[in-house]
Amino acid sequence: MNMDVRPSFLLDGEEIPFEPGQTVIQAALTAGHYIPHLCYHPEFVPHGSCKLCTVKANGRPAAACTLPAQAGLEVESETEELNDLRRTLVQMLFAEGNHFCPACEKSGNCVLQALGYDLGVMTAGFRHFFLDRPVDASHPDILLDFNRCVLCKLCVRASEEVDGKGVFSLAGRGISRRLIVSAESGRLADTDIAVTDKAVEVCPVGVIIRKHIGFQTPIGRRRYDVRPISAQALEDAPRKPEARHG
């Protein structure tokens, strides 16, 4: 096969080659083009819930993480309308949860925060919900602070698919949707989670926090303090094409 005839689509006017089975975001990241995203993680089947990666494909809005790449597709991403949408979604998430960054160990390494920085979000703007979400500090090595949950389901997926445990699940509906743990007591200490689990590492925000190692890297020198997420995400992106999809 001649590699020159790899199929491609257009992203903001630039040609993006793709492998069959790739989604738009996978192909874009591989090709060095950033599309903002939160619940998408290259190692997991796309979830499609945060909607930060919403693009317009042939004029129709779609989540880039679940949209299969197709030859000839014309995709818009870096437009004022779409970035405005993304800003509003970040604002909605900040208003929904209780995100007190100054006291969060994840600050500087937090994807939600980094998206806010990169998109220029200065305030949640909306009325804060101030939902009551008690912290679970029962486990000796892991803290669960539900106040910061964005319901991306990455820990649920990691625990089921990688750790083979099913420690987490989402429950409830609408604004009452919440993360729960697999224990009759409702306490993390009564689950079989281990500090080495993928589920512990994968949280993009500050819900699942390892105890005893707090502030090892000082604020100001952390991942997204050093480099904006739009640049960091490209550096992290798998260079060789992958073909996972939902």
Binding site: G48, S49, C50, V150, L170, R173, I175
Partner: peptide, 8 residues
């Protein structure tokens, strides 16, 4: 409650 726009 699955997606941000509708849930929130």
């Amino acid at each position: 409650g699955f997606c941000t726009p509708c849930r929130v």
